[in-house]
Design a binder for these strands. Structure first.
Lengths: 208, 208
DNA sequence: AATTACAGAGAACAGTTGTTAACTGCATGG
DNA sequence: CCATGCAGTTAACAACTGTTCTCTGTAATT
């Protein structure tokens, strides 16, 4: 049902995306609260006033970036948590998936890590909303697991959020290790794997 | 041994502290990378050029704030981890300690959470160095625990860093819940406590 | 008592910022 | 085919930024 866009709207979306891309690149070396709209338009090669055709402010652009960075991630999360492998294999795959994602979209990951607690309220809230969604989705997948028999809803959500936070921490570590040696990156893999394993062990004996 | 400071140096330290305080307050609503030096001096009531007598740049001021926020925290961490109580009591005390600290120094906690992944490299590194120290100190305390018999050094550090990250997450949650209802804050206490308990259970069965 | 050191003030600089207004050209819908 | 809508431009604005240089008063040193 996606009607082919007219020339007009297509061009508009093109510059909009160019603004988002340029902003994301500029944000690798600063925070959103110091990103100027002129800075962004200059990088794209468009007049400053053109910015207002797409965003009310840089905060507004930030919210759009949150959607771009996290919006498409939900199915990936679901399938990873709900895979039918054994414990250790599931953990290994999750860590690999995070590493791959950081490699593929480093600027997006950096943006989320930076602005999650950043100085722009609407952006913080947008990220928080997405992470709440992740938590609830992970809980839903965990609930399907036979191992979750006897768990309360609250405890499942508690565990789910623990996993979500752990994934963010791991992603951030991969980001820092991106320019480092292969051994350093392997060390991150090892630590992240064992931390997830320890959490899984805690999960196994929660109801003892 | 602390010689009484002369009038001159005392006055200098006073304005220096005023600059730090003013900056910390301004940083509640923005990130360090957007903090202007004129903004800070204006808040204190001194000339913009006076700033240079104390700091090379706002980044430099940020590094000083890291020291102020985390430097005095090491003994507190040590004593908390190494208390001789039972598991659950230790966890309860740790969560209470975090809640109390967030209540006492909310601006410092916000600053660390915000700038840990923020847009100013020297500040990120200063925070990272402090957290690495925390991790090593926690490992050293854990190593004294008879329960750590049979653990490798690597695994102890892995666990220590898991605790450190978890404390930061909890502190951040308390910060968000600061203006919320008492029930909401109690919910944070419950979740944080159970997450720490799950990790402790994982620790107990790590060597199975 | 005379000299030095130095925290802070003051003025000026070139460059930047967000926002407004009025405009131009062209794709679109009637 | 013509009238409308609208993405993007140009120009201008007041306000702000970091940094330099020069100056002043006074605490500290000799």
């Amino acid at each position: 049902m996606s009607h082919t866009l007219g020339i007009r709207q297509a061009q508009k979306q093109k510059t909009r995306q160019a603004l988002l891309d340029a902003a994301l690149e500029l944000l690798e070396e600063q925070s959103l609260s110091s990103l100027g709209l002129r800075e962004v338009t200059r990088a794209v090669g468009v007049a400053p006033t053109a910015f207002y055709r797409h965003f009310r402010s840089t905060a507004d652009l930030g919210v759009a970036l949150v959607e771009e960075a996290l919006g498409s991630l939900h199915p990936m999360i679901r399938t990873t948590v709900s895979s039918a492998d054994g414990h250790d294999q599931r953990i290994t795959r999750a860590v690999e998936l995070i590493a791959g994602h950081v490699d593929a979209y480093p600027a997006h990951v950096r943006f989320i890590a930076r602005e999650r607690h950043g100085g722009v309220q609407p952006v913080r809230e947008a990220i928080r909303d997405q992470l709440v969604r992740f938590g609830e989705e992970v809980r839903a997948e965990l609930a399907k697991d036979p191992e979750s028999a006897g768990w309360s809803e609250d405890d499942l959500l508690m565990l789910a959020n623990l996993y979500v936070d752990q994934m963010l921490i791991t992603a951030s570590l991969f980001l820092e290790a991106q320019e480092a040696s292969a051994e350093e990156r392997e060390r991150v893999v090892q630590v992240a794997t064992r931390q997830l394993r320890l959490i899984s062990i805690g999960r196994d004996h929660w109801l003892d």
